[in-house]
């Protein structure tokens, strides 16, 4: 699949990049009246295999090393360039996407195209297949490095920031009853923690706990907050609300006990499994509630080892 994806990336880049990005400027040119023999020094010194023929700033033809060789074989070194050049010139505009250049190379089989400005038709550069490949590789390398630096910065935050204790708190507001967006906060939290370099298995447990906690706040309260406190050894997920509160916590913790209204069940939740799920996928859970005042749920997941009471190896084997 990796090859498929990079292929797509290249395609994307050929649309994003312009001919101007890949072309070589400061083009060596010849004038139509120059004798063919002048090409020898030009091609040798500039290490090129062809050059546009320019008259009054406009491209009137292209002369290549093949043309030179033919003249050499027939002893025509003093013939003017104009008589041996390819006269019908195909050019590219500097502001065209690179993909046009790629197609033109396929279509004509030429080794190079002069590049001109769209408005003035003035010659500004020349492009070969090699230029396109170099340009794409350069761009891919830059993007790869940026991604690497990006990843590095986020995942090494705890090592890079020097303090006796570092604690990063991510907070998400949850609107009560907003079922359309239910899950959004947990999903965003998961993405943020992934960027911080938290290992996928652990990340999943945290995200599931956060999702169920978010769901409870949305279903039962007028709104609240989801927070994740991250330090080097653990993540603590806290969901707080000022909602109605839970009268009997022990009962609420029973699997399948639910006070959820029917509309919640229709949406795939409210079967009384939420709190069980949170308890099962975290290492420690604490639920505190006061009727009429609100509820605070706290769940802890330790980083760098399996679920509490389970050997890390055993946890891995089940993954």
């Amino acid at each position: 699949m990796a090859t498929d994806r990079s292929y797509t990336k290249i395609q994307e880049l050929t649309y994003e990049l312009k001919v101007r990005d890949a072309m070589v400027g400061n083009v060596a040119t010849v004038s139509p009246g120059q004798p063919i023999r002048d090409l020898r020094d030009l091609m040798r010194k500039r290490r090129i295999s062809g050059a546009p023929v320019v008259e009054n700033g406009r491209v009137v033809g292209v002369i290549s090393i093949e043309d030179y060789i033919k003249c050499l074989a027939q002893g025509e070194m003093d013939v003017p360039v104009a008589e041996r050049m390819t006269g019908r010139v195909e050019t590219l505009y500097a502001d065209e996407p690179l993909v046009h250049a790629v197609r033109k190379f396929d279509q004509y089989g030429f080794g190079r195209f002069p590049v001109v400005e769209r408005d003035s038709r003035e010659l500004v550069g020349i492009i070969t297949k090699g230029n396109i490949i170099r340009c794409l590789l350069r761009k891919l390398e830059i993007e790869y490095r940026e991604e690497e630096i990006h990843q590095y910065r986020a995942s090494h935050i705890f090592e890079d920031i020097v303090a006796d204790r570092t604690n990063l708190v991510l907070k998400y507001d949850i609107a009560g009853g907003d079922f359309d967006r239910a899950g959004e906060s947990a999903s965003r939290l998961k993405k943020a923690l992934h960027r911080l370099g938290i290992e996928p298995g652990v990340l999943r447990r945290i995200a599931i706990a956060a999702f169920e906690a978010e769901m409870n706040v949305i279903v039962f309260t007028d709104g609240g907050q989801l927070a994740a406190s991250v330090c080097s050894e653990r993540v603590t997920v806290t969901a707080t609300d000022s909602g109605p509160g839970i009268a009997d916590i022990e009962q609420a913790m029973q699997p399948s006990f639910s006070t959820a209204p029917d509309w919640v069940r229709e949406l795939g939740f409210g079967a009384g499994m939420g709190l069980c799920n949170i308890k099962n996928c975290t290492d420690a859970m604490n639920l505190a509630s006061e009727v009429g005042r609100g509820t605070t749920l706290e769940a802890v997941v330790y980083l760098g080892r399996g679920k509490a009471g389970m050997e890390p190896e055993a946890a891995d084997a089940r993954a």
Partner: peptide, 21 residues
Amino acid sequence: SDAILLTGLANRQVIYTADVA
């Protein structure tokens, strides 16, 4: 995470659930 989810629900929570899981 290596599963396909078949479900009769068709709302956004299915997508959020799948994402989180």
